[in-house]
Design a protein around this nucleic acid. Structure first.
Length: 434
RNA sequence: GUGGGCGUAGCUCAGUAGGUUAGAGCACCUGGUUGUGGCCCAGGAGGCCGUGGGUUCGAGUCCCAUCGCCCACCCCA
């Protein structure tokens, strides 16, 4: 209470009890990514400020006011992963090694926004990106992968799909939209009045009811795609259909980063308050070239918000069903001699591969039994003066209260513990560890 | 950056019209069992009542300021 040092606003510790949920999310994600032949790439958190300015867009909110930047050094803590990933892709010439790269990365991102539910200043994303293919099947496959990941996590979300066109068709549409908005300028909210000149597409996803009503009649980008974009979008949808991915078209969906082209999508939930997007992404066919990479190399990717996934898991019924890993054995030592001996025995058992817990504080047997119970250990090895005399330990099965005398040798103990009981069923330790 | 709400034990919260040493449940520790967990019982530890100032004989309670957190706008994963 007197402690003045505390985590910064918008920065959170992930404590034991919650961390298991995070590990679950990561484990499932890695499994799904592997099945789709994605390789992990690990990227630095600090990058040149210019990298984000040039990719995300000089006039986006992220770049204008949300980045953690060391101004004097011109470096910034990454607010998203795609830019870094492409930087690495170009820097190491990954496009030479393999024409189509499938990469994923997991880690913290930083944006100086006002924290609220599902939104922190340090937050974590899982990113998957495919570089080097404009094939619409890649788009479909990527969305299918996201859907599979979410399904295996057990969270239910809906997928919304749109196309933003390309430099061929978007400018003309943008102009037409701008004209439409200008005609209704007075009915728009203040934000949208500003947006209608700077970034008219953003007006489309304004939450203000009056703006929404106006925008219903606005020209749709989907009806103004050039033939190439139109066909691409058709094939993306055909791919989704073939893979059995449910989705709905949302012609008002706009992404907040400037680099998106053609396919954009969001995985949406209604269970997170104001933060509806659990995952989102899209195609960015011009970005690699724009950052100094090879000409014409396209890309597409998505990011999932891990805090949001964890929140959904916590809110759903099965959220707390994920137990912690329990020790195989708890050693209860009584008296100095036994304690000295067990200190070494625990180490031997640990190096033999067992998960061993022990109390080093010299507490009463009753207290140690309580601790053992709390850790969930399946077995307790009791060693006191009597046991030390005849070199026999007392091994108690915590599930059925049976006790037996055992030889105090690591090898013997290990083989005795090769079986344990979970919900009445016998499992081999090795099977569980593998 | 703009609103609104809330700060009392590790956690969740009581605290009556300002009035003795500030409470409960959970969690923690010890004991009831000279060496045996879950349940139960008894005891214990743990609070400058976010911080600073003011009003008052007296402030957790009223006033002001300040800091912190939460939710929403905005933005986004």
């Amino acid at each position: 209470m007197q402690l003045k040092l505390q985590a910064l606003n918008g920065f959170k510790d992930i404590l034991p009890g919650d961390v298991e949920l995070w590990q679950f999310v990561e484990t499932i994600a890695r499994s799904v990514f592997a099945r789709f032949d994605f390789s992990e790439i690990r990227l630095p958190i600090l990058e040149p400020t210019e990298l984000f300015a040039r990719s995300i867009g000089e006039t986006t909110d992220i770049v204008e006011k949300e980045m953690y930047t060391f101004v004097d050094k011109k470096i910034t803590m990454r607010p998203e992963a795609t830019a870094s990933l492409i930087r690495a892709y170009i820097e190491h010439g990954l496009y030479v090694q393999k024409p189509v790269q499938r990469l994923f990365t997991i880690g913290p991102m930083f944006r100086h926004e006002r924290p609220q539910k599902g939104r922190l200043r340090q937050f974590h994303q899982m990113d998957a990106e495919v570089l080097g293919s404009q094939n619409p099947r890649i788009d479909a496959e990527l969305m299918a992968m996201g859907a599979m990941l979410l399904q295996e996590l057990g969270v239910s979300v809906s997928l919304e799909l749109n196309s933003l066109g390309c430099p061929e068709c978007r400018p003309a549409y943008r102009l037409q939209l701008q004209t439409f908005l200008t005609e209704r300028f007075d009915t728009l909210c203040d934000d949208c009045k500003r947006r209608s000149s700077t970034n008219p597409l953003r007006v489309l996803d304004c939450k203000n009811p009056r703006c929404r009503a106006q925008v219903q009649a606005a020209p749709s980008i989907l009806e103004h795609l050039c033939s190439a974009c139109g066909q691409h979008f058709e094939e993306v949808q055909a791919g989704l259909g073939q893979l059995g991915v449910q989705y709905s078209l949302n012609k008002f969906m706009v992404r907040g980063l400037d680099y998106y082209t053609r396919t954009t999508f969001e995985f949406i939930t209604t269970d997170l308050g104001a933060q509806a997007a659990v995952g989102a992404g899209g195609r960015y066919d011009g970005l690699i070239e724009q950052l100094g990479g090879p000409k014409g190399v396209p890309g597409i990717g998505f990011a999932m918000g891990m805090e949001r996934l964890v929140l959904l898991l916590q809110q759903s019924a099965g959220g707390d069903a994920l137990g912690r890993l329990c020790p195989d054995l708890f050693i209860a030592a009584l008296g100095q001699a036994a304690s000295d001996f067990c200190f070494g025995l625990a180490h031997e058992l640990r190096s033999a591969g067992l998960r061993v817990a022990m109390d080093l504080e010299g507490r009463s047997l009753k207290s140690q039994m309580k601790q053992a119970d709390k850790t969930g250990a399946s077995w307790v090895l009791i060693i006191g003066e009597d046991e030390m005399k005849n070199s026999q330990g007392l091994l108690r099965n915590m599930k059925n209260q049976e006790q037996q005398q055992v030889e105090l040798k690591a090898g013997t103990l290990k083989s005795l513990l090769q079986t344990r009981y979970i919900d009445g069923t016998e499992f081999s330790v090795k099977k569980i560890l593998s």
